[in-house]
Design a binder for these strands. Structure first.
Length: 799
DNA sequence: GATACATTTCGG
DNA sequence: CGAAATGTATCA
């Protein structure tokens, strides 16, 4: 038997090599298992991605697999297949793709152990290289030291090269050992005192002599009114887990049974005819195991969550598992604290003990525990952010991507996969339906639905639902210093008078600046790309992020001849001041990204100024007015998605304004009141927006009418980066059916001491795009003088 | 990514 | 001229 193995010496290595499986390891050899293999002179961990009966031709001597760690993680076959697709689609190594699917820290590692070699040789080495003296001294006891500890102890020397040099002279010996990365799922049981309070105290005084640390734990346990986690108890007593464990062993503490989160009995949800029909269609696909993709669009006032929650319940009732992906922000919110605390419509409580919750904050042990629960089938429903798409479900029957348009599904670092697209592919591989749900779907998904690749399930607003009143305030002609129009101030006053709250949305800081005309509201756009130009203070230039066009900033508006040109819509600092002055009743709170810490303060405020839509919580309830200070900030992003982002943002703002139940109010201040994104959002008309936006995308051949990739070439020397980028651009331009924009200095041209040059590749479709990129990058010398090329297929942001 | 081996560079 | 620095191919 032979195994195809992807060795993993760090990730960049890209090859599938064949090894002999020794008799003793046959049992454990499986596709998806981790194996330790010799590579050159080293021993490296790797993944088995295929099993063969006969050896490949043209290889003289095959090496043997050294070990397959028992109890190591084994990726399901389907995940290995998924990784192959990812490597193809995102142009990364199979190894990188496989690593995405593993919980962090689960890979086997090689530990290097160093000990002193021949004494005479060491002596000579120390004389020749006095800087290595300390290192040799440290080894002089004759004991082994790991590479890791040496690196930590001698940060001033390059331990790797030192050891090489020393080993060549027999001054040290290096041995390799496998550290099985079988991090135990660390248990953190709920504990309580085993004896009444008085007796516990008595025990504590007895312990005071022998172990002060354990005595403190006893006192803490006696004081605790309800069961405490072992880790929390240790912390409270300023003691250690070991002390807690010792007392548990002695029977002075005992484990309290975990309260099983009970699936809450829910009121039957009354589906409308539309919703019921949508649900039936999804359920049918679940039953037939059809790999269909549903685009469930539920504008404000409809109930898409209820539909997919029911579909998940249906899948579970048929003995299948379901994966539910949610945007990062939904997990980060206060809802996450304990899965048992989850409120409706969050589905956590619905499924009781059957839920496995995955998120980035999970400690390694717990992640591992969840992995096991999913793998064994104990967990029926997996809920998590993007990485949950790799959950090792053996009986998957349904995948849901909630908020499918959300940017957080895209991985920020390489390989830059989009979990939503990975979900669709996983559905295809597994033969299970995928539900993409969104209040305002991405143009890509919308287009796929129109092309009948996806099944569109559009839910209408529920009967009785009332959208907010929308006021679009034209800020053209207002004096440049004004932040809040009279209409907005009036709306705030009204909201407060009515006992409601106002949520004012400010542009996030650090957005690039567009140049716009205060009279006609037009922002300067690139004639080639139809994208807003960014203003660069240095040299007073306007630049295009797409094609690199650079022109001097005009003194007057090219559209209307007006001379009042603004760099920003409004000043960002003055809103708070303005509101305070204008409405004495206002208790203003400026809210930054993290809400968690100061709930009390939040509860008291009645005007909240924030950069993003704050989720409704107990503290921030009754928001009856949402005010968008300057919609132009979103509209003028130097990005072909600017209109889409604006439209979605305003739709969500509208939904937020209507959430409080009674009639809400949305005020949008803008220099471009006639822009289609603003008009459509104000009217709550998705169809109108998609029609205009899709036409615009088609006209400029932007996605979804083309496939796009962003390339960033970086190097230590600016010249080098530019030179390689130019050469690469030439090769790609020569490919068929390709438009290449750039290369231009990347918006953050110098980052971490490296110069970056960026270009944008547009192709008719993914096939042509990938072909061009692959042949161009394959022709490139792999690692030319520290120049690196990063590829971002289907980029979301071009900055 | 690491390593062995080939090539160029640089001080003497 | 030889050691050191840099480049390049290969890993089964």
């Amino acid at each position: 038997m032979f195994a195809e193995v992807v060795p993993e010496p760090g990730g960049r290595f890209d090859a599938v090599l064949t090894y002999v499986i020794p008799e003793a390891l046959r049992q454990r050899a499986a596709v998806g298992a981790q194996a330790l293999v010799p590579l050159g002179k080293r021993l490296v961990p790797g993944f088995i991605v295929g099993l063969l009966d006969s050896p490949p031709e043209g290889v003289e001597q095959l090496k043997q697999i050294v070990d397959i760690p028992a109890g190591g993680l084994v990726l399901p076959r389907s995940i290995v297949a998924l990784a192959r697709w990812i490597a193809e689609h995102y142009i990364c190594t199979l190894c990188q793709a496989l690593r995405l699917a593993l919980p962090s820290g689960a890979t086997a590692r090689i530990k290097r152990l160093v000990r002193l070699g021949e004494g005479a040789a060491a002596q000579r080495a120390a004389e020749e290289r006095p800087e290595y003296g300390g290192l040799l001294d440290a080894l002089s006891t004759g004991e082994e030291a790991s590479l890791q500890t040496l690196t930590r102890r001698f940060p001033q020397i390059d331990v790797m090269t030192a050891l090489d040099w020393l080993r060549a002279r027999k001054a040290v010996k290096v041995r390799e050992e496998i550290t099985r990365a079988v991090t135990r799922a660390r248990l953190d049981p709920l504990l309580e005192a085993a004896l009444p309070v008085a007796e516990m105290r008595a025990e504590a005084t007895r312990f005071a002599r022998r172990s002060a640390s354990q005595a403190r734990v006893l006192i803490a346990a006696a004081r605790a009114k309800r069961p405490v986690r072992a880790s929390a108890l240790a912390k409270r007593a300023r003691s250690t887990r070991a002390a807690v464990a010792a007392l548990l062993k002695r029977g002075l503490l005992r484990v309290r049974q975990e309260p099983a989160p009970q699936a809450r009995k829910r009121r039957p949800f009354m589906f409308t005819l539309h919703e019921g029909a949508a649900l039936r269609e999804i359920n049918q696909a679940v039953d037939q195991a059809e790999p269909r993709v549903f685009l469930l669009s539920g504008p404000p006032g409809s109930a898409p969550e209820q539909v997919w929650i029911s579909a998940v319940e249906h899948a579970v009732s048929r003995g299948k598992q379901a994966i539910v992906l949610v945007p990062e922000i939904s997990l980060a919110g206060p809802r996450l604290a304990h899965s048992a605390d989850l409120r409706e419509p969050w589905p956590g409580r619905r499924f009781g003990t059957g839920v496995a919750l995955l998120h980035s904050g999970l400690p390694e042990g717990q992640r591992r525990q969840q992995w096991q629960r999913i793998e064994s089938g104990e967990a029926n429903v997996v809920i998590g952010a993007r990485s949950a798409i790799f959950a090792p479900c053996p009986r998957i029957g349904l995948i849901v991507v909630d908020g499918e348009h959300d940017d957080s599904y895209k991985q920020e670092d390489a390989p830059r996969v989009n979990a939503r697209d990975v979900a669709v592919e996983r559905g295809r591989i597994e033969g299970c339906p995928v539900v993409l749900s969104s209040s305002a779907p991405s143009l890509e998904s919308q287009h796929s639905a129109q092309q009948a690749r996806y099944r569109a399930l559009s839910l209408p607003a529920r009967p009785g639902w009332q959208g907010p009143a929308v006021t679009v305030v034209d800020t053209r002609g207002s004096s440049p210093g004004t932040t809040c129009s009279a209409k907005l101030v009036l709306a705030v006053k009204r909201a407060l008078d009515g006992g409601g709250r106002a949520l004012l949305l400010m542009p996030r800081k650090g957005f690039s600046t567009a140049l716009l005309c205060a009279d006609c509201g037009q922002a300067a756009k690139c004639p080639n790309c139809d994208v807003c130009l960014t203003y660069h203070l240095a040299g007073r230039k306007l630049m295009c992020h797409h094609c690199g066009l650079s022109q001097p900033a005009p003194d007057s508006c090219p559209a209307c001849g007006g001379t009042r040109l603004l760099l920003r819509g409004v000043g960002t600092q003055r809103v708070e001041e303005h509101i305070r002055r204008a409405c004495p009743a206002a208790r203003v709170l400026r809210l930054d990204a993290d809400v968690g810490g100061k709930r009390q303060v939040v509860g008291k405020a009645n005007v909240i100024i924030s950069t993003g839509l704050v989720e409704a919580t107990r503290e921030i309830s009754k928001v009856t007015l949402v005010g968008v200070i300057s919609a132009d900030t979103w509209l003028n992003r130097p990005d072909f998605r600017a209109a889409e982002v604006t439209f979605r943002f305003l739709m969500q703002a509208a939904a937020r304004a209507a959430q409080a139940g009674r009639k809400g109010h949305l005020v949008i201040q803008t220099y471009q009141p006639d822009h289609y994104a603003i008009r459509a959002a104000a009217a709550g008309d998705c169809a109108a927006f998609y029609e205009v936006e899709l036409a615009a995308r088609r006209e400029h051949a932007y996605p979804p009418f083309s496939a796009m990739a962003g390339l960033v070439v970086s190097a230590r020397a600016q010249q080098r980066a530019e030179q390689v980028a130019k050469a690469l651009a030439e090769t790609i331009r020569a490919e068929e059916r390709i438009t290449l924009l750039g290369p231009i200095p990347a918006p953050l041209a110098k980052l971490k001491g490296r110069y970056r040059s960026q270009m944008l590749v547009l192709a008719d479709d993914h096939e042509h795009l990938l072909r061009a990129l692959r042949s161009a990058t394959a022709g490139m010398p792999r690692n030319l003088g520290g120049v690196s090329v990063q590829v971002d297929v289907d980029p979301l942001s071009l900055v």
